[in-house]
Design a protein around this nucleic acid. Structure first.
Ligand SMILES: [Mn+2]
Ligand SMILES: [Mn+2]
Ligand SMILES: [Zn+2]
Ligand SMILES: [Zn+2]
Lengths: 127, 127
DNA sequence: ATAAAAACAGTAATAATTCTTATTATTGTT
DNA sequence: AACAATAATAAGAATTATTACTGTTTTTAT
């Protein structure tokens, strides 16, 4: 991980991501921090999220309603996206696939990781 | 499937999608058809892709460089996305998961389908 | 053919993200 | 503590994929 100058805002952004299981969007992170950091800029959130992703500290878990959603849990795990309300939920269980295992033998490129995403309706949206 | 008036442009759009394995973007479909349909409008491509998706005739396979990619093969199958050149490749093999099987028992919502996407470098991009 | 409905082209609008630039914060050094 | 070097930031402009609007054309049923 490239070493960077310390920044309290960057730290706060990562803290927000680490303290939630909601797989937030950039906008949501911004809204969370704005009260405590009145001079926070949305661009700063986007920029730092990009840096975190480059450095492997967070991952993207998909796009919901045109907005990218992020996750500070970088351990491979599957997600469920509710196509009605847009919630992104962690799927526990043994749904993790070892990319190497899964595709070795019949794919010639190099596989870095594998995304597994279920779609449907969450419990709340089923009434 | 809701029944719609016939339209040669709509038909052509679906034909393009069905005749390629490249998982194209809206823009690409438009570029393919523009020579034969000089008055084709990009909005028409977007609108019809949406209709096809609503009707279940095509699926979205992910976003590459900010552009949604489509697939006329609606049978569940996994994909590989090259994070360098953006190619989207079908993954053959038995990588299909029965949503019901995969998550029954430990998830309470209703699962419609499951997306499996590998990321890495394609053969061409590895030199 | 006529008329109603649906689809269209062309264009404007929207909205997420990125880029630019002048300013400020951080870190190490005198 | 003041300084210099550089990274990080705010603010807003720019970019760009997608959608909405409006007047016109095509389709299809009568
Ligand atoms: Mn997660
Ligand atoms: Mn495919
Ligand atoms: Zn829901
Ligand atoms: Zn490639």
């Amino acid at each position: 991980m490239k070493d960077r100058k310390h920044s309290r805002k960057r730290e706060a952004i990562l803290d927000v991501l680490r303290s939630t299981k909601t797989h937030p969007s950039a906008e949501w992170v911004y809204a969370q921090l704005k009260p405590s950091y009145p001079d926070l800029s949305l661009g700063t959130v986007y920029r730092n999220l990009s840096l975190f992703r480059e450095d492997g500290q967070i991952i993207c878990v998909g796009t919901v309603n045109g907005q990218e959603r992020f996750d500070a849990n970088t351990k491979p795990h599957a997600h469920f996206i509710c196509d009605r309300c847009g919630e992104v939920i962690d799927m526990e269980g043994r749904l993790c696939f070892d990319p190497g295992d899964a595709a070795s033998g019949f794919f010639a490129g190099s596989i870095d990781y594998c995304e597994v995403t279920f779609h449907g309706k969450c419990l709340k949206c089923m009434e």
